[in-house]
């Protein structure tokens, strides 16, 4: 009898809890771990070896940690893109391989003067390191390209909270049913690299006839700073579940170039469609 009473009490208390939550938008707060998967497509042109734009078709994945409070969003993210770069010319197919690794540290702060409970504006900064490894067997000794781009970027983010309330409805006017209450966050993020550091070969390097490959490979590298050399955006819709976890759907885009006047110009972009899960862990 005691057990039955206890179960009923727990059940009742959870219903009470749900009712309390019904009209309050859950505020993300605390520590979160996120994981996203997706498909990435884009373009890449490395003038060191080819004047052609290759189309990238890559598998995307990232893993991130967030800390969110009333004022700040702190994010630590590692992402990877892996797949093919391909070019079709007159029935001839040229294929290479690409792996890219992105590491990002981001801090955004709520701009309270223009924010309210439903529409929030954030401003902050990103520190980002992007490394791309491309292999193009057709280029023989110059088949391997490794580039690294480090960015310091200013970032802006807007979030709009949308509360889809519970509604009583009738199917064909005959069958009554109730829609569930849902909480969505629509989000747009823009990041503009103020200064970027491109680590890139000064010239094509076929291993230089030395014995140690690593030695000449990286000795031929130069560092070049470039202002406002790219852009990245992220548009997403997140559904906040009652347990605080989040399901996220998004589209992200980024591009970078070391400049039209660079001798060994590098231009690339990624368009990513992804789905993700974010878990609240305390």
């Amino acid at each position: 009898m005691k057990r039955i009473f206890l179960i009923l009490a727990l059940l009742f208390s959870s219903l009470v809890y749900a009712q309390v939550q019904e009209n309050t938008f859950p505020k993300p707060n605390g520590n979160y771990l996120g994981i996203n998967w997706g498909l990435s497509t884009g373009s890449v042109r490395d003038m060191l070896t080819s004047p052609l734009f290759y189309t990238s078709v890559l598998i995307y994945g990232d893993f991130s940690y967030f800390y969110i409070d009333e004022q700040n969003i702190f994010e630590l993210k590692t992402a990877t893109h892996n797949g093919l770069n391909a070019k079709l010319i007159s029935d001839n197919f040229y294929v290479g391989f690409q792996s890219a690794f992105d590491f990002k540290l981001s801090l955004l702060r709520n701009v309270q003067s223009i924010s309210d409970n439903n529409l929030k504006h954030y401003l902050g900064a990103d520190i980002d390191n992007y490394m791309s490894i491309r292999i193009m067997p057709d280029f023989m000794n110059a088949a391997l390209s490794i580039d690294n781009v480090s960015n310091f970027a200013i970032a802006y983010k807007a979030e709009y909270n949308y509360h889809k309330k519970r509604k009583e409805k009738n199917f064909l006017g005959l069958i009554p049913y109730t829609t569930n209450e849902k909480f969505y966050v629509f989000s747009g993020r823009l990041s503009v690299p103020v200064i970027s550091l491109y680590a890139r070969p000064k010239f094509t390097n076929p291993e230089s006839a030395t014995v140690d490959i690593e030695d000449p490979l990286f000795k031929g590298y130069s560092l070049k700073a470039k202002a406002f050399s790219g852009l990245s955006t992220d548009l997403s819709v997140s559904r906040i579940l009652k347990n605080g976890n989040i399901i996220k759907y998004g589209y992200a885009w980024m591009f970078a170039t070391n400049g039209k006047n660079a001798i060994n110009r590098l231009e690339f972009s990624h368009h990513i469609i992804y789905i993700g899960l974010v878990f609240k862990f305390n």
Binding site: L48, T49, S50, P51, L52, K87, I89, S90, N92, Y94, D138, F139, M140, N141, A142, A143, T204, P206, E207, S208, A209
Partner: peptide, 13 residues
């Protein structure tokens, strides 16, 4: 001299 590979605008290497 060690050879460098590359591509031309028409796709030839």
């Amino acid at each position: 001299g060690l050879p460098n590979g590359g591509q031309l605008p028409n796709g030839w290497t």
